[in-house]
Amino acid sequence: MLPFNDDELDQMELVEGAMEITAAVEPAFPIGWVRIQLKKLAQEAEHALMDEPNPRLRLEGLLRLFYREWGFHGDNQQYFSSENALLDKVLQRKKGIPVSLGAIFLYLARHLELPITSVGFPTQYILKVDWYDGEQQFINPFDGEYISLRTLRGWLIGYRGPFTELKDEHFATADNKDILARWLTVLKSALLREEHYTDALRCSDLALSIRPDDPHEIRDRGYIYQQLDCSHAAATDYTYFIEQCPEDPAAELLKLQVMALNEEPLTLH
């Protein structure tokens, strides 16, 4: 369980919430070291850019500093590695995925008083700039490039089909709770791929503390229980998913899994 409620979660920096959830998943996570590194980056950015009175030029300077001078970039070679979702590894390697790089960039932008917020776009996490004259811009935190509406529509069509249209809801500022839930999903998927099932289970339990009774998360937890040879716990989670999502294509296959799991002898862990 997280040591704070939803309101407290939304009042803190996204990167701070990410540190807290990571520490809950990875007991050895060096949260103090990460805070020090972030503070150093913020001080360097402030020293370099706070004397620039034009906020647009200040943003251009931060993009240049973060992606070119410091060398932060998206990991194209091992995109699905858990290291790309763990902030200590991202800071050490200067490589990550949109949500981890974006959370760090957002933290720095707030220190520079830039009007940037989070957007949970359907295909990936992006950053939104709401300029004071009403203009909006969007940044891909994976590479620091601006994203046009045409490109965003192309992403959405590739994800949801050719008749999909952009809507205002796609660009709504996201709560930290929603972004962190997606972050946990990414981390959990990476840990499963790496067969780190105990850590993945902690991820799943933490995600359920943010979104209780989410049937898809409970289904995923059932899979983790199955890998850990907790057959009856897995069957219970699968059964819940089947009851909540009977029309899901996976439901029929999971019914067979439940039958097989219930035939296995009870194992005490």
Rank of each mutant, 00 (worst) to 15 (best):
R160K: 15
Y125D: 01
G17L: 04
V90W: 04
Y223D: 03
P98T: 01
E44P: 00
P246S: 14
E243H: 12
L87H: 01
A18Q: 13
Y225L: 04
I97Q: 03
A42M: 05
E145C: 09
G222M: 02
R202Y: 08
G222W: 01
S189K: 00
A190E: 09
D220I: 06
L87S: 07
D214K: 12
E69N: 12
T151E: 11
V99M: 07
T123V: 12
K39M: 08
H196C: 05
A190D: 08
I179W: 02
L266M: 09
G96H: 06
R182D: 05
R150Q: 13
V258F: 05
Q136K: 14
L191A: 08
E83N: 15
P53K: 14
E252V: 09
Q227P: 00
R93V: 00
I147M: 11
T173L: 01
Q11N: 14
Y125W: 07
R64G: 07
Q137L: 11
Q43T: 10
H269S: 01
P27F: 12
I157P: 03
L149E: 07
L91T: 03
H269Y: 08
I218Y: 02
D7G: 06
E8V: 04
H232Q: 13
F29I: 11
D168C: 03
A85Y: 10
I179F: 02
F163L: 15
K94M: 07
Q92M: 14
L254G: 05
F80L: 14
K188V: 10
Q78N: 15
P98L: 06
D248L: 05
R56W: 03
D199V: 04
L253E: 12
H196E: 13
D75N: 15
A18G: 09
I157F: 00
R58K: 12
T185G: 12
L91H: 04
L38I: 10
A172Y: 06
Y223S: 06
A85I: 02
A109S: 14
R221H: 13
D213W: 10
L206R: 12
A109L: 10
P122Y: 09
A45S: 15
Y225A: 04
H47V: 07
F121V: 10
H47Q: 15
A24G: 11
P3W: 03
N140F: 03
R68V: 14
F66S: 11
Q43M: 13
A42I: 02
L86A: 12
P30Q: 11
L57P: 03
N262S: 08
M19P: 00
G144T: 07
A28H: 14
K128C: 06
Q257K: 05
G120L: 06
K95H: 08
F142G: 04
L254N: 02
E263P: 00
I104N: 09
F138H: 13
V34I: 10
L208V: 09
N262W: 01
S82C: 09
P27L: 15
E16L: 03
E195L: 05
E13W: 07
D10T: 05
E113H: 10
V34M: 10
L9Y: 01
L87R: 09
Q37S: 13
V25T: 03
L184F: 04
Y67Q: 12
F142W: 08
R150S: 07
D51W: 11
F171P: 02
P30K: 03
L180C: 08
G32H: 13
A172H: 09
E217N: 10
L180Y: 02
K94V: 09
L14S: 01
L41A: 11
